[in-house]
Amino acid sequence: MNIQQLIAKANKAHAANDISLAMGFLKQAGEAGDINAALDYAYYLSHDKPIESVQYLESLSCVENPIVQYHKLLIAYFCDLITESNGVAKSLVALGQKGVIEAYLVILSYLEQSSSEFSFIANKVRNIAPNIFNQLKLDEFVNSKVCESNNDKVAQGLESKLFEPLPLPITLNEELPISLFESTLSGFECNYLITKFSALLQPSMVVDPITGQGRIDKVRTSYVAIISPEHCDWLTRKIDKLVAKATKTRCCEGEVLNLLRYVPGQEYKPHYDALNRLHDAKTFEDGGQRTKTAIIYLNTVNEGGNTTFPKLGMRVSPNKGNMLVFNNSDDKGNVLINSYHAGESTQKENKWLVTKWIREHKTNYGKFLYGNH
């Protein structure tokens, strides 16, 4: 069979929900030279058999293709097959030089925005992809006076950041508890998330306890972009990993990331993120109880937009790049009464944030991307 026939058979098997058969055809199509099919199969394999996934890509005739090299590096890095940062840093720089714009964006997500190395790479993005440079508002961060750098200095600066630990949290409340991690994401990363995923925005929903499906409700009037596995990239996986470290959980226990936008007047009225075992039985099937919540603010809001905890008399102001983490349930899965919280409406500007809920067991999203990790 040729590539077109293999892809057609894969699509037919996928439509019949025979994922294993579909992936078998994609594997063959990849071996026959189709890069997209090869990458689809490699990512499918990576969550349970990451070593075999990398080995599969290395066996292909297209292994030297920069795009294949980039995704092979991504899989190896996030499946913890690489623990030595020097090689990752040099590979990302080399891939950027070969025209892989994604590699340069990954580099920017780790470098200090005030550094000459950041400005050096940002200017490379400007030259290669001016539209992306403008969309990401990189001119906000480039300092024309400190642009003298080179690829070796970039690799050195990147090397020190790839396995950098989270900053120590500030404990806002010990009873719940509630913790704040300052400057978890850079201004560039916040702009990136808004720019890349805002096209996916849809009216926010609440979970219908009977059907387990989402429905629109006046209790929640924001817009949400659900960043499902097919949209995930290096940066979203980086955030999954940061949240897992901050909550002391595993990546496989997380739900999908949600990008949220609140325009002035929109709000999320007081509610619990924890689930009711009886009324939310359908939702419980995917991972059990929601044990923790992580909220990362993507812009600073000057009037309104606070995350409030009415039973604790607390307000947390949205500050760009900060991450708020709190518990929703106790060790037995019971709802913590003080986790009752709300998202206040803003007065004059939009509020942007990403949220992630953590479950007590592995989720479908987590298993698909991370297996048991």
Rank of each mutant, 00 (worst) to 15 (best):
I194S: 06
A274M: 01
D280G: 01
K218C: 00
I216P: 08
E230Q: 13
L278F: 14
C251G: 03
S228D: 12
D286G: 07
V243R: 03
K269P: 00
R277H: 06
Q202E: 13
R215H: 05
R290Q: 03
P203W: 05
C232M: 10
T247F: 10
P209C: 08
E253L: 13
P229G: 11
C252R: 08
T195E: 14
C232P: 02
A246V: 14
F188D: 13
V224R: 06
E189G: 07
I239A: 04
G265Y: 13
R250G: 09
N191T: 04
L257H: 00
S204W: 01
K196D: 03
V263W: 00
D233F: 10
T283H: 10
G212M: 08
R215A: 00
S204Y: 03
W234R: 09
Q289P: 06
W234P: 12
R220E: 04
C190S: 15
T247I: 07
D286Y: 08
M205S: 05
Y272V: 07
G214L: 07
I210S: 12
W234Q: 12
E285K: 13
E253T: 13
Y272C: 06
N258K: 10
C190N: 12
H279D: 09
Q266G: 02
T249E: 07
Y268W: 01
V219N: 07
Q266I: 00
L259C: 06
S198R: 15
I227P: 12
L275D: 06
V219H: 09
Y192F: 15
K238A: 04
V206Y: 09
S228E: 13
K241N: 14
T236E: 07
